[in-house]
C-alpha cells in the first residue's frame, strides 16, 4: 500500500475513472529486478527481437539503430537475452 496516496472522495474523477492514459509509466518497476540486460554492440545485428519480445515494452530504438532497454521499467526477466540470436545481450548486475 506504500506507493499509493489516499485521495479525497471529492477529488476522484466521476465513477473512480482514471483520466490520464498510460499513467502507469510513473511506476518504475525497474527496482523489481535482480539482473539487468547488457548489450554488446559489437555482436548486435539490430534485429529488434529484444524489442519484440519484451513484456515490459521498455525497449526502444536509439538514433544508431540499437534497441535499448529502459532499465527503470525492466524487471530483469531475461527474455531479451534468451531470444537474442547473436548472444549480444547478457544478464548481469545492473551498473548504476
Amino acid at each position: 500500500m506504500s506507493d499509493r496516496a489516499f485521495v479525497a472522495w471529492q477529488k476522484l474523477a466521476l465513477g473512480c475513472a482514471i483520466l490520464e492514459p498510460g499513467s502507469s509509466a510513473k511506476l518504475k518497476t525497474g527496482d523489481w529486478k535482480s539482473l539487468a540486460p547488457k548489450l554488446d554492440e559489437e555482436k548486435c545485428i539490430k534485429c529488434g527481437k529484444c524489442f519484440t519480445y519484451c513484456p515490459e515494452f521498455c525497449y526502444s530504438e536509439d538514433k544508431n539503430g540499437f534497441f535499448r532497454a529502459d532499465l527503470s521499467y525492466c524487471k530483469g526477466c531475461g527474455i531479451c537475452a534468451n531470444e537474442c540470436p547473436t548472444e549480444a545481450i547478457s544478464m548481469g548486475k545492473e551498473e548504476k
Binding site: M1, R4, A5, F6, V7, A8, W9, Q10, L12, A13, G15, C16, A17, I18, L19, P21
Partner: peptide, 19 residues
C-alpha cells in the same frame, strides 16, 4: 481515452463508494 472500472485499492475503495 479514460480507464473505467479500475482496481479499487484499499486507499480509494471507500472514497469511491462515498462519491
Amino acid at each position: 481515452p479514460v480507464s473505467m472500472g479500475p482496481v479499487g485499492v484499499p486507499e480509494v475503495y471507500m472514497e469511491a463508494k462515498k462519491q
